Simulated scan of single mutants.
Amino acid sequence: MPTPDSSAAERPTRSRNRRGEGGRLRQDILDAATALIEREGGATNLSLRQLAREAGISAPSVYAHFTDLDDVVDTVLNGFFDQLRDAIAAANAAEADPVAALHAGCGAYTRFALDHPGRYRALFDRRPTGPDATPSRPVPVRTDVFQTLVDAVATCAAAGRSATTEPFADAAAIWAALHGAVLLRLSVPGFPWPDLPVFTEALVTRTGLITD
């Protein structure tokens, strides 16, 4: 029977980088953090020792490329935000009709969340990451991602397709509704939820004050 420390001992040790390959180590650390977040369903309990073990390196090696564990997690989260923003923007751009574009972008948001639950939870659930980590900093502010939704609502209003007079506030309402719907689906998967695209469209139509 393995001892409590045998799993760590059995994990393959990462081979030493050749000169000029420091960038590979940095990416290996980010890849290890991503794998842990996806496997654990978030970044809440991530520790420096756990990250180093996953990457097959010693814990001090992390400091050659990152200030601390929070710096690693912030970098990974910014990458997740980029993925989410790009998915929303691509969905918006694929539709010429402003209301269809709004619905498509919101659909891309919910699909990202449900297809990548660990990544999604990590974006909005930053807490202290464990005894080996420095105190957790706030989630990186990425208002550019939210701005895609504000712009989509404003475009609907400009086209006379939404009754909103406050695109920012109504975009925030849409986001809150979608976020709540996503978390409920992830937390209570056995509930007989309505079809996701239909449910998402209904939420967006009501909270975005879509007129037709």
Rank of each mutant, 00 (worst) to 15 (best):
A43K: 15
A93I: 03
A96V: 09
D28S: 07
F81L: 12
A87K: 03
A55C: 08
A59E: 08
A59P: 15
A64V: 15
L36S: 15
F66N: 14
E95F: 03
S47A: 10
S47T: 14
L84M: 12
A64E: 12
G56Y: 03
R49S: 11
A91I: 09
L84W: 09
A100T: 08
A100M: 09
A59G: 09
D86E: 04
S61F: 04
T34F: 13
Y63G: 00
S61M: 00
T44S: 00
P98G: 04
L30K: 06
I29Y: 00
Q27P: 06
L30Y: 03
I88H: 05
I29E: 02
I57Y: 00
V76E: 02
L77E: 05
Q83W: 04
L77V: 14
V72Y: 01
D86F: 09
D31I: 06
A32T: 04
T75R: 13
Q27N: 08
D28Q: 11
V76I: 10
A90L: 06
A89S: 10
D82N: 12
L84H: 11
H65L: 06
T67W: 15
I37M: 01
Q27Y: 06
V76T: 03
Q50V: 15
D71W: 11
L30F: 11
F80G: 05
A93S: 04
R85N: 13
V72P: 01
D71V: 08
N45A: 15
A32G: 01
A96N: 07
A94F: 00
T34A: 14
R85E: 11
T67N: 12
I37F: 01
D70P: 07
A32P: 00
N45V: 15
F80E: 06
A89H: 07
E54T: 07
D70A: 13
A96P: 09
I37E: 00
S58C: 11
T44C: 04
H65M: 03
A100Y: 01
E95Q: 12
F80T: 10
R39L: 13
T67R: 15
L36P: 10
Y63K: 03
E40S: 05
G56I: 00
A90P: 01
D86P: 11
L69M: 08
T75W: 10
V73T: 09
D71S: 02
F81V: 11
G79R: 03
Q27T: 08
T67E: 12
A93W: 04
S47C: 08
D31H: 13
I57A: 00
A52F: 03
